[in-house]
């Protein structure tokens, strides 16, 4: 922030960096080094996408949500129900999942922009739980607690069937996640994105300088919901099953944990959080099925103790210390 021409600073920040390209190349190469874990890799990408959608709202916009699974689940049920009723083409199904979730997000945004702090947290939680109960009550449509079965997805582009090893699913999830990250990257570096961060830092100030924040917050909630729906739709299509847990409180809470763990307000916070949390859980529950919660909890506590800004924040601070250049403090943003 100490840059003399702030515009130059923003531009520098928005430039594509080598590290990012390498990261996405490394993920793309997953079939080479973890050929047996492509389903896990896809689920990590989906969770990262879900966390990214929350990041836009919470990390950049400063609006907490404890009911984000409402949009995830809406996307999942949209994609799942379409496929169950014979619309098995994946890409259009995914677009529909995103649009329906975005529409729900738009509707909810009129309630949400009026609230902040704990009330916002609890109202989003409440709306999420109401939707969960609704899905349970509409068991004839959703399958209730048994889950939605008979979800059959046609081959991608009519060519690549969803195989058991999960190759198609991985490539599909990868491409969608890459596109979503590119989109969010543009958004957060745009004037719109900057005004969101301004709102996060000082809502009163933004109102004073005349920014139409209510409309912008509605927009960001809509986009965030759409991305969450995209993630949910992806999960439904790659798993070919939708359970009530897609809408559950646990999923909402977990994505908040994942985002804070990785580092909110940073483009890759959700991705890093999803990587650490999900690989950690997989490895720990494999090694110690009854007590893995202990070790996962310990990791969270240690991260808080030693990296209060999340893993990416901690990494950035470490870089600053190593290179001794304060300007890099913003590097990871």
């Amino acid at each position: 922030m100490e840059s003399i021409a702030p515009g130059a600073g923003f531009e520098r920040r928005s430039r594509l960096r080598a590290g990012e390209v390498l990261l996405w190349l490394a993920i793309a190469a997953a079939p080479l080094y973890v050929p047996g874990h492509l389903v896990l890799a896809s689920q990590i990408l989906i969770t990262a996408l879900f966390a990214l959608s929350l990041d836009l709202l919470l990390g950049y916009g400063g609006m907490i949500s404890l009911g984000h699974a409402a949009y995830f689940g809406t996307g999942a049920y949209t994609a799942g129900l379409l496929a169950q009723h014979g619309w098995s083409e994946p890409i259009s199904g995914l677009v529909a999942a995103m649009l329906v979730a975005a529409a729900l997000g738009f509707a909810a945004s009129f309630v949400i922009v009026r609230l902040s702090g704990v009330a916002l947290l609890m109202v989003t939680l409440g709306l999420g739980l109401l939707l969960f109960e609704l899905a349970n009550a509409l068991a004839d449509i959703t399958g209730g607690s048994d889950g939605l079965q008979g979800v059959e997805i046609a081959p991608l582009l009519g060519l690549f069937g969803f195989d058991m090893v999960g190759r198609t699913g991985f490539v599909y999830a990868y491409l969608v996640a890459l596109g979503a990250f590119a989109l969010v990257r543009r958004i957060v570096h745009s004037p719109f994105g900057l005004s969101l961060q301004g709102y996060r830092e000082n809502p009163a100030r933004m109102a004073q300088i005349g920014a139409p924040m209510a409309a912008r917050l509605r927009l960001v909630n809509t986009i965030s919901a759409g991305l969450a729906g995209l993630a949910g739709g992806l999960l439904a299509q790659t798993t070919q099953f939708v359970g009530l847990d897609a809408l559950g409180f646990e999923r909402s809470a977990e994505v908040v944990i994942i985002l804070i763990l990785g580092g909110g307000g940073r483009l890759y916070g959700g991705l890093v959080g999803a990587l650490v949390f999900m690989i950690g859980r997989d490895v720990l529950s494999e090694a110690n099925p009854e007590y893995w919660y202990f070790w996962l909890g310990l990791i969270l506590v240690l991260v808080v103790l030693f990296m209060p800004q999340g893993i990416l924040g901690g990494g950035a601070a470490l870089l600053v210390r190593l290179r001794g250049r304060a300007a890099l403090g913003e590097a990871a943003r």
Binding site: Y293, G297, I299, V303
Partner: peptide
Amino acid sequence: VLFTIGLTFMAVA
């Protein structure tokens, strides 16, 4: 949130 959830996980185990 992160800290107390971590503690809770440990308590559960």
